[in-house]
Design a protein around this nucleic acid. Structure first.
Lengths: 263, 263
DNA sequence: CGGCGGCTTGATTCGAGTCAAGAACCGTGG
DNA sequence: CCACGGTTCTTGACTCGAATCAAGCCGCCG
């Protein structure tokens, strides 16, 4: 049970980048945070990274791999809320709102390595560096935006559009962390549980997307052939997670007043 | 176009209470915030309180009435993301993430009065009082929790359970702001747009809920007759917005370390 | 080699949407 | 005070999209 702790760990590149996108522009703050993160050895395969109902004294961040956050109904059916990529926090809500969200689980889709940071450490850092708290606040608002869009898609679009939307969302999220692949790392079951459909119907939907030339086969998995076509079919508009843009606005709005006060 | 500005305005009771629940326990912070809030005269009837795509230099908070946040697909169909009650912020995301969420709209369901605060004022206050930023952060995380639960319900439950769930959610939210009514202030169209169903089917669903004795008629509107029964049918568990509980935990976790640092 | 999880396909059922028309209710203005 | 037009509610008939059931297939890993 030894663990690595050093801010230069190569797995930190994505987390670093993500925090910068969220507005943490000072290296000293970044280093202070990364310094506190443990990387337990080994990888999660498909066991749950976050087990529902279990308390924990630390927060978890995804370093490598693809994971999903989900919850089950009592009849066993599963709704996937979001897919997570390198640099995503898995369970921030548990730090700020400990009682909340105990039923939510996080599971690995591809083999995952994670980092952990104690709640106490994190809270102390937030108190010390307001920029960090603001960054995490923004992360929460972005998550809420993503959830709203998914709700719109699942509540009001038919299967074909839903799946198209979901695929676009994943491409956009991968872009945001610098992954260029046009392949979808998800099984049809994952897509079904995220889109609120049955696997059988997802399969038929994929067939139709192939027929329309929006997807192509890459052996076992699917590859996006016509990204614009998919986006227009699913009414996907990536603006809402366009980090770089946001960043510039943010600095105008917040950085300025806080300096005015100090002077 | 005159406007009222005084922290003792009677409409502030709910907002005050809400912020206290979110962890703002100092009266001076509360007063500083309320002092900055304008209450434009008049009430919104059904016109949009927040118009999609329009930039604004201020944030809006609901003082009185019931509103809903929604978005439309290009074919005109509407998905309601959430209903808002006294003390709810309507458009926080627009302050922190200006580019994001421009398509989201907020409309009055019952006549609404609102308060506004300039982005600059709000940002200055957040920079000055970290407790305020933390409170708004928590508000965002609670919103995300609510959205996740809705996604689970809409993605995986059939109509009867969805409607039951939605009604329970509204009762719980009303409780949180101290409204005791068991009546549902929503039209069947509102319920349909929130639950991702057609009005016709919502009507039939209500009929079934009446038949089962979970609802009763109160003239025009429906009244909840068996709250526990509804909750069990819809698998609703209000823990996730149980503010008072959260509050006590929060003070243990955050307040302590930040004091340690100062000494 | 055997087994198992993911994919594929067809047949059938069923929940929910759509269309249509009428009734009850609302606010408004004559 | 009542007549009007517009929402909201209600109900029935019909259609359709998606779930379910069932079976066979493929490729992977032990």
């Amino acid at each position: 049970m030894t663990s690595v702790k050093r801010s230069k760990h190569q797995g930190f590149v994505h987390l670093r980048q993500r925090l910068q996108q969220l507005g943490v522009d000072s290296d000293s703050v970044l280093d202070a945070l990364l310094e506190r993160i443990n990387i337990p050895p080994g990888r999660y395969r498909s066991e749950d990274i976050i087990v529902p109902g279990k308390e924990s004294r630390h927060s978890t961040v995804l370093i490598e791999g693809v994971a999903c956050m989900y919850e089950r109904l009592s009849n066993g059916s599963r709704q996937i809320f979001s897919f997570q990529y390198s640099g995503d926090f898995c369970d921030l809500a548990r730090n700020v709102l400990p009682v909340t969200n105990n039923e939510v689980a996080v599971a690995a889709i591809t083999p995952c390595s994670v980092g952990t940071i104690g709640h106490n450490d994190l809270n102390r850092l937030i108190a010390q560096y307001p920029a960090l708290g603001l960054a995490l606040w923004r992360a929460a608002m972005i998550e809420a935006s993503i959830l709203r869009k998914r709700l719109l898609s699942i509540g009001r679009q038919p299967a074909l559009q839903r799946v198209a939307y979901l695929i676009c969302e994943q491409l956009a999220r991968q872009d945001a962390v610098g992954i260029e692949s046009a392949c979808i790392p998800l099984s049809q079951l994952d897509v079904a549980d995220a889109a609120g459909l049955s696997t059988v119907h997802v399969n038929r939907t994929f067939k139709e997307l192939l027929r329309r030339g929006l997807l192509v086969r890459m052996g076992r998995t699917m590859k996006v052939a016509d990204r614009a076509g998919l986006a227009s079919l699913g009414e996907f508009d990536g603006k809402y997670l366009n980090m770089p843009r946001l960043l510039s606005r943010w600095q105008l709005d917040i950085q300025l007043p806080s300096q005015l006060i100090k002077s």
